[in-house]
Design a protein around this nucleic acid. Sequence first.
RNA 1: GCGUCGGUACUCAAGUGGUCAACGAGGGCAGACUGUAAAUCUGCUAGCUUCGGCUUUCGGAAGUUCGAAUCUUCCCCGGCGCACCA
Length: 398
Amino acid sequence: MNKDHIDELLSRGISNIYPSKEFVQAQIVKGKKLTIYLGIDPTGPTLHLGHAIPIKKLSEFQKAGHKVILLMGDFTAMIGDPTDKGTARKQLTHTEVMANLKNYKKQASALLNFKGKNKAEIKFNSKWLGKMNFEDVIDLASKMTVQQMLERDMFKKRTEENKPIFIHEFLYPLMQAYDSVAMNVDGELGGNDQIFNMLCGRDLMKTLKNKEKFVISVKLLEDNNGKKMGKSDGNMAKLSDNADLMYSSIMSWNDGLLVSSFELCTNIPMFEIEIIRKNIETTSANPRDIKMRLARSIVTIYHGEKNAEEAEKNWENTFSKKEIPDNIGSINAKVEDLLIDLFLSNKIVASKMEFRRLVESGAITNLTNDEKILSANDVAKNGVYRIGKKRFCKINIK
RNA sequence: GCGUCGGUACUCAAGUGGUCAACGAGGGCAGACUGUAAAUCUGCUAGCUUCGGCUUUCGGAAGUUCGAAUCUUCCCCGGCGCACCA
C-alpha cells in the first residue's frame, strides 16, 4: 500500500482521528492488519446514503486488507442512542429490531464484501450486552462520571429546558464503549456525531485492556452553510431504492451539498473533485450537469453501470424533456370507476381529502389527453396521470 | 411523601369555558418561477360529505355545563423545590 493511498484512506471524508492520524498511519505502514468496526443501530428498516458514508469508509479499510466488523446494535437499539435527540427515544422491542436489520446485510453488500477471504464479519452486540448482570453493569457504570455525561450538548440542553434525562440514556455510551472491549478491536469508525460515544470506548479500552483504541470519525453530508442533511429533509435516498428513485432523489439535493457529496459518496478521485469544486466556484457551468454526474456515480455503486445509465436517461426524459416515463405502475380499472377511488385503493393518495386538495390545486393531469382534472368526482380514463411532479400512474380500463 | 409547574396535531409551540380541527415556526404536499434544484412568493397540511354539515382529536377515565383543550375529581407520566437518606 503506497503512501498516497494510505493518505487518502485516512483523510478523504474524515473529520477527526484520535489519538492522531499519525498513530494509525504508523500501524498501517508497519503492515499491521487492523481490526476495525462500525456499529449501526437498527432503528429503522432501511439504510440510507447517510449510513452508507461510514460503511463506505469501512469498505476502504477492507479493500486495504484490514479486518472489518459491521456490528449490529440489536441490543443498543432497544435503549436508543440519545445523540441528537431532544427527548428520550421510544424503546424498541427485540423483535422490532431484528425485523429492521433483516435487510441490512443485503443493503450493505454493495459496499462491503461478505464473502471470500477477509470477508466482513457481522456481529450482534446482544451477544455480550445481553448477558451482563447488574453487577457487571455497575462495574461499567463506575468508569464514568455524571459530569462527563452532562457535558454533552443535548443533555445540557435538556437540563436547561427542564426536559427529562433518564438514567438508561447515560448507559448508552457505556454500552457502546463495551462493544469495543468485547470485540477487542484496534479501532472504531463512525459518523462525527458519534465521537463522544466512540471516545468512551477508547477510554474504556485503555482502562480495562490498556490498549490504545483509535477512533476515526467521518464527515456527514452537509451543505456550504454547515447544515446537516438528515432524514428529516426527506430526500435522503435509501439504499433499497431502485436506480430511478435513487437517481431522482440525488438530483433534488441542494447544490450546496455537491462537493461534499462527491467526496463522501463517490469513488471519483480527489484531484478530480478539486477540479469540480473550482468549476462550480469559478465558471457558469450548469450545476445540474455536475449533479447528474454525482447521481450517476452514486447509483453506479449500488445498481451497476448499466442501471445507472438507464436511470439517467429516464430522469432526463421525465424531468428535463418532460416526457412520460416508460416504467410506471399501472392500475387496472373498470369503465365506471372513479379516479378518486382508484388512487385511494392503490395508495397513490393517503385519503380522499388529499385527492380533493390535489385536484383543487391543479396538481393532477391526464397526460395522454392533456386534461387537468378539475373535479374530485371524475371518472377514470385510459391514459397516464401525473400527480404533482413526481408521481405517475397509468390506468388501463378493462 | 409534601408543595408547585407542566403533558396540545409529524416535531417544536400558542391557546386557560363558546368566534377551536385549535395562532405561529419547522417539516411535508401542491402551484408560480426554475435546472424536478436552492432561495423566493402563494395555497394546503385529522377523516367523511349529497358541500348543508357530520365524526374523531389537546396524557387517561369520570363529572360540571346548553357548550370543555380550557373548570372539578381521580389516575398515569415528567420538571423544579422541600423532606426522607435506613
